[in-house]
Amino acid sequence: MARKLPLIHRYLRKDKKFPTVWCPGCGIGVVLGSLIRAVHNAGIPKDDVVLVSGIGCTGRMPVYVDFNTLHTTHGRALTFASGVRLANPKLKVITVMGDGDAIAIGGNHFIHACRRNIEITAIVVNNFIYGMTGGQFSPTTPTGDISATSPYGNLAQSVDICELARDCGASYVARSTIYHVNEMEKQIARAVTTSGFSVVEVLSTCYSRYGKLNQKGSPREMFRALKDQTVPIAKADGDERINRGVFIDRAEAAYSDTYQAIMAKAREHDAGEPLPLLKPARTGGTP
């Protein structure tokens, strides 16, 4: 009997030449697998999914998948995604971004996407480094770690992406790792079906440009370390390790629905009639 192909093969592009650009042992492919299964289980048709990325190793994810795919510029995935969503609110818009893409160059867009709480799912693959360009430190590189641009140790504090997202107003915020595939899959499935802006941070590994420099062991050891370095929120009391789980889940607001309503209002508005605020003020006796 023929071996049954894993589900993801029904979603990978047949006309796209493989292998992927990713290094052996890279964690990004694991995220792609979970993303596909989550979308499949949520029952969202391929035609309705728009997968948007910026630039980076993570940014190369969309090209392999048979969705509507948009590979944009570094840091701008959320801006393109917002445009797509506002133009067609029927689409399920998902962005995949690296830590640098989402939080360094794209940090501003990230904050405002949370604040608007626009119906987009942001999956941030946090490998603690700029992988693609050779291992420069990013906003999530732990203090003291070695990178190509911090050979004596990273000076700055690192940012907590989930805390940032929650504080800025995102509807759904969760964290998982590539070691915890089932958990990640559940979080992504929830993220793509809730309303408002949803963020799933996935801790990942970059053996080539980060692990090696910091003596983190083999790719497999790096995978396993994600288990030891994290703890579920429920058990986190007093534990210093990174928390995994759901930080907030408050399905709310529908930015693009409101936007559609405002557009309808604007269209109904009589073109000959000025908007109340734009009526010229009567001053100095001249009508």
Binding site: D15, K16, K17, K46, D47, D48, V50, P62, V63, D66, F67, N68, T69, L70, H71, T72, T73, V84, N88, K90, L91
Partner: peptide, 22 residues
């Protein structure tokens, strides 16, 4: 084609072939 109209394709800022792939 617009996204959502049934043709699923790739758009990139990389140089690409007629199919849209880098």
């Amino acid at each position: 084609a617009a996204f959502g109209e049934g043709y699923r394709y790739h758009v990139t800022g990389l140089h690409h072939d007629p199919a849209g792939y880098p």
